[in-house]
Design a binder for these strands. Structure first.
Lengths: 287, 287
DNA sequence: GCAAATAAGAAAATCCTTTTCGGATCTCAC
DNA sequence: GTGAGATCCGAAAAGGATTTTCTTATTTGC
């Protein structure tokens, strides 16, 4: 368990002085991580022994252990709390985007519903045919990646970003098929309709979207990614990174679900990669 | 500058004892981060003052400053050095994929050639027409994203994943155009040819690829991402995350290059988003 | 209202870290 | 070679930081 989350959680039983320490640490992580025990104690208006006891209560052996743990575990979360910086220079933009992407991964990881992902992996690996639907720039990237990851495992998968085509395909599925749909906002009404049509046919539906959204409610299995997005319209959404990760986890689990079944396909891909590595080939599989 | 990279770099001028410390730290970061100065000194067979001097040489104020810096900056890198873990459970797979993605972002951020990105942004923002080329699952995702990010800024951009079409388009460009090409391996021979054709026409070429590769050498501006990829064929490449980040930075810089020019387009997009947010619309722009 | 538990600081002890100092080794010009 | 100057590095001491111990409130539960 990560110490940062521990500190933030509500139910934590702390005494008055310890709570003051916790607040101080959360409020100024930079200070907490760099200060000595006496400085920290002074600023929280407690005595040094109280700080030591506080660290022990949080599961650390000593104050320095606490500092190291804090420095490690909160590195990503630490920057998350800072107010939106107005970045202008290339270096600021780079820092900001990379940080946001790492944060998105960090937060999404904490939210992961592993049971749902495992269930989705099981369903996908047994599917007769997989239809991956998504529209708009971001979701169409996601379904493209979905295909890119799953065809390699020997699964039968097609994608569509066209609503008309999605409706027709959703009407044509059989009970053994799976319809996978991605929607960032969760309010893609056509996707909801496509799910509904597919469920009428007895197919299983999987949504990758925001929780408590129409799309989420329309699907059998829901993989949720709920991230706060900044207001900067110049900034591409960092949710993409999180969704990509969910997809990668899903694909990986599908691969592991039935290793013997996917092994043959993967071996062929690997051989193909090795065979072409030194030739004048365009490295399609690697690219 | 991140202390982890500093430690690894070759040209660092360290004395014998200091080198022994550096080796020890790199070899067992976990120990280095948790040990006291006396323990560390004892294990490196040097005296405590030498450790203090070592920390100062690396730009830290004190030993504890060094430990915190190490814990912070190497948190991601630290796990990177660990041998490939055989992950099986869903939770392990998730942890592994998220960590690798964060690592990829972390490492790529450190390698960024900001000058090249700024140059690319300047060239793109002034381009008459942009052609984005990439083949294979990963690179075609990248060029798709490239289009997704740049059309929003009012730029004229088309993509192609088809070599034949790429050749034809590359032959048809004018001096004012830009050809952007992505290749994970850097050995996409057709892309090299397309770059060469485009340069013959006087167009500017930008590559997003591995450094010192044929594709990198064939382009005017090179945005490099050099990441070691594990051997696990089941595992999707984490380089995608890094490339996506480079793209986001690029797109953001393009947006900032000429705010007045892109402002109009962005405003329309924003209005469109707001107008459709509560309607029965598929949220195309948001998705 | 009182025993037991808990909380928290003062003081002391311990341990860690840094500074100071001096000896050893190396470098390099002559 | 050889001596002046650098550099390296540990011993010892000084100075803090951290923890332990002890003690005194304060709270809790009965």
């Amino acid at each position: 368990m990560d110490i940062f989350s521990t500190l933030m959680q509500e139910g934590l039983k702390l005494s008055q002085s310890e709570q003051r320490l916790a607040d101080l640490v959360l409020e100024d992580l930079d200070f907490a991580v760099n200060a000595s025990i006496t400085d920290l104690a002074a600023r929280a208006e407690v005595s040094p022994p109280t700080v030591t006891r506080f660290c022990r209560r949080l599961g650390c052996q000593s104050f320095s252990d606490f500092k190291v743990t804090l420095a490690k575990s909160s590195y990503v979360g630490l920057r998350y709390l800072k107010p939106e910086a107005r970045s202008r220079t290339a270096s600021e933009v780079a820092e900001d985007i990379v940080t946001k992407a790492q944060n998105a991964l960090f937060v999404a990881h904490g939210q992961l519903d592993l049971a749902a992902i495992e269930q989705a992996a099981a369903v996908l690996s047994k599917a007769g045919m997989i239809y991956a639907f998504g529209s708009g720039g971001n979701s169409s990237m996601i379904v493209g990646e979905m295909q890119n990851r799953l065809f390699r495992l020997g699964l039968r998968i097609t994608t569509s970003t066209d609503h008309g085509m999605q409706m027709m395909q959703a009407s044509a599925v059989t009970a053994n098929d799976v319809v996978f749909g991605s929607s960032f906002s969760g309010r893609n009404a056509e996707l909801v309709r496509a799910f509904s049509l597919a469920r009428d046919q007895g197919a299983t539906t999987i949504a990758l979207t925001q929780s408590n959204s129409p799309v989420a409610e329309a699907a059998d299995i829901v993989l949720t990614v709920d991230l706060p997005e900044g207001e900067n319209i110049f900034r591409p959404t960092s949710t993409r990174y999180a969704m990509l990760a969910v997809l990668d986890i899903l694909a990986n689990l599908v691969a592991y679900t039935d290793r013997t079944a996917t092994a043959a396909t993967l071996r062929r891909i690997k051989e193909s990669l090795i065979r072409h590595r030194d030739g004048d080939d365009s490295q399609l599989l690697g690219d």
